[in-house]
Design a protein around this nucleic acid. Structure first.
Lengths: 133, 133
DNA sequence: CGTCTTCCTTACGTAAACGTCAAGCCTGTG
DNA sequence: CACAGGCTTGACGTTTACGTAAGGAAGACG
């Protein structure tokens, strides 16, 4: 048994990331695995942070933004102020994402229209025998 | 008067881009300005394409994706086979876009949930005076 | 004619988020 | 003991969408 730590390989399997990614995150001070000799051991805290990192990535945060947010969590004093800042940042991101989705929806509709037009043209071209006569 | 063409500077002012950007787009075969000596002259067609390029960028498409879409928009005078190929490409793009939007929607919902949680926590922290007593 | 401004080409620089070697250290196994 | 595997640390490579600097041509102006 280990004392609630995981090796890099176990982490990779559990969270579907590469070793390179985990080392990269450590180098960027997003994770702080302890060492057994030269081997990394990822603690419960690292796993919690990694979950937040991956979720942040889904939301479109950069790693640097994520690092800052994680740091805010880490500072236990002034929690209310920090939480408010986090909240504000998150709201901005949400607005960005919604705007992006709206634009995407518009583009989808445009493209759909194009496709319909394409279908019409193809149909009129598929039976040119009658029209040619 | 010019014959419906604009210089690079006029283009930059009109569309809020840099000269570098326009040259870059030309090098990537997104634009095809004609030449007066060595100077570029951007035609009406270039301007139409640039509008689509900028819109595509707002949608989050890569320039390479945009180039494909432009090909779709402008290769309307082709053979049936060509049309079918572009049609297929466009359908793939549409599928990609819809998947992208679905992911975005999911992420948006997640983030919204996070924000609600944040509000709850903040509310419970704002009035600790009573609870402390 | 000299200088300014605008344009040109060439080409190296940048940031993000890792991928991909290279080469070395440990450990277990036959 | 020898070798395979897994982990380690560099350190250079990749992609995208330009920025930026160097050096030069070409027309306008005083």
């Amino acid at each position: 048994m280990n004392e609630d730590t995981k090796t890099i390989r176990q982490m990779c399997d559990a969270y579907d990331v590469t070793p390179r990614t985990l080392r990269f995150y450590e180098s960027k001070e997003l994770l702080f695995p302890i060492r057994d000799g030269q081997k990394r051991l990822f603690t419960k805290r690292d796993r919690a942070r990694l979950k937040l990192i991956l979720r942040g990535k889904r939301f479109g945060f950069s790693l640097e933004e994520i690092r800052q947010l994680l740091d805010l969590y880490h500072k236990d004093d002034q929690q209310l102020v920090q939480l408010r800042r986090t909240y504000a940042i998150a709201r901005e991101r949400l607005a960005d994402m919604q705007r992006q989705r709206d634009e995407l929806t518009e583009a989808i509709d445009d493209l759909k229209a194009q496709l319909k037009w394409g279908e019409k043209v193809m149909n009129s071209m598929e039976v040119p025998s009658k029209a040619a006569e």
